[in-house]
């Protein structure tokens, strides 16, 4: 491959991207940075371009805001639980579905159906599910622990509420991991598999030594993308627990939402968002380097 890209490729591969991202997102982003550096809220009554300068005041406030730090930690914990869970289940399912069988396309369509629903609706469904009058308690009732199940109030206990959010997220997003890995596994050349089988390798070995290394880049991509999204978890928390009880399940996205939209604390919210952005940026920089680095 020539070192320098030929003219048309060079233009095509950077100009449209530049136009799109810069045209749509740069100016609002700069506005956001500006808002974080001033002390402004619509309630202050001055135009946003006349706002008094604040410097790092908002950032200092964020660093001593325990609700913010707790929300950060909580959300990080959530991501650390949810992403590996979805990865493993998705990988397992993708592997199982490598074998052809009748109605496979139908089954796959079924398995990826959760992705087609708006997260808000999924949140509502699971909200109803975990109510005392919902199916979870009434099915548990019948099979697992008897009539006491009717007295389990999922949203009253911080841990149980946290679990419900994990359940909702897993239900909706495992298909994401599954789909990526399924397409990746399907792309493994059959000839390699056949060659390995001829050499007498067991199915387990084939999986570990042939398939997995080949889809590693895709796994990394999937994990990075999914983690970024999981960090922004909002709908499930908002609808199902409202961040409660108290603020014990409040995700960082919900906190920022409340700051920006309910309390109209725009400058502070912008500062908090930028801090979150910086943290995620740094963490994912190293993650990408490790996972995808070689390229």
């Amino acid at each position: 491959m020539p070192e320098k890209p030929p003219r048309p490729i060079k233009i095509l591969s950077s100009l449209p991207l530049n136009l799109l991202l810069n045209g749509v997102l740069i100016i609002p982003f700069i506005i956001m940075i500006y808002l974080a550096l001033v002390k402004w809220s619509p309630l202050v009554g001055v135009n946003w371009w006349n706002a008094p300068f604040g410097g790092v005041v908002n950032f200092q406030r964020a660093l001593s805001d325990s609700r913010f730090i707790e929300a950060l930690g909580r959300t990080a914990l959530f991501v650390a639980i949810v992403v590996p869970l979805e990865l493993l289940i998705g990988l397992l399912l993708a592997y199982i579905l490598q074998k052809p069988f009748r109605g496979k396309r139908f089954v796959i369509s079924l398995l990826i159906y959760p992705l087609m629903l708006p997260p808000v609706v999924v949140a509502t469904v699971f909200y109803l599910f975990f109510q005392p009058y919902g199916p979870v308690n009434n099915i548990f009732l019948q099979y697992v622990i008897g009539p006491r199940a009717l007295n389990i109030y999922w949203f009253l206990d911080p841990t149980l509420a946290f679990i419900t959010i994990i359940v909702a997220d897993t239900w909706q997003w495992t298909p994401f991991m599954f789909l990526i890995m399924y397409s990746g596994l399907s792309a493994v050349p059959k000839r390699l598999i056949e060659a390995a089988e001829v050499l007498g390798a067991s199915e387990w070995t084939i999986f570990w030594k042939v398939r997995l290394p080949l889809i590693k880049p895709l796994i990394s991509v999937a994990v990075i993308l999914r983690s970024l999204e999981a960090f922004k978890v909002f709908d499930y928390v908002y609808v199902m627990t409202g961040g409660g009880p108290g603020t014990s399940t409040e995700s960082i996205s919900l906190y920022i939402y409340r700051l920006a939209i309910l309390y109209s604390d725009i400058s502070y919210a912008a500062a908090v968002s930028l801090i979150v952005l910086a943290i995620i940026f740094i963490v994912s920089y190293f993650a990408v380097k490790i996972l995808v680095g070689r390229r």
Binding site: L21, L25, I27, P28, F29, I31, M32, L35, I224, L225, L228, E229, F231, K232, F234, I252, S253, I256, Y257, L259, A260, I261, I266, A269, A270, V272, S273, V276, L277, I280, F281, S284, V288
Partner: peptide
């Protein structure tokens, strides 16, 4: 990837 890292709520006003 920056475009996916930002919680959307603050981006609303800008």
């Amino acid at each position: 990837l920056l475009t996916r890292m930002l919680p959307p709520a603050t981006f609303v006003t800008p």
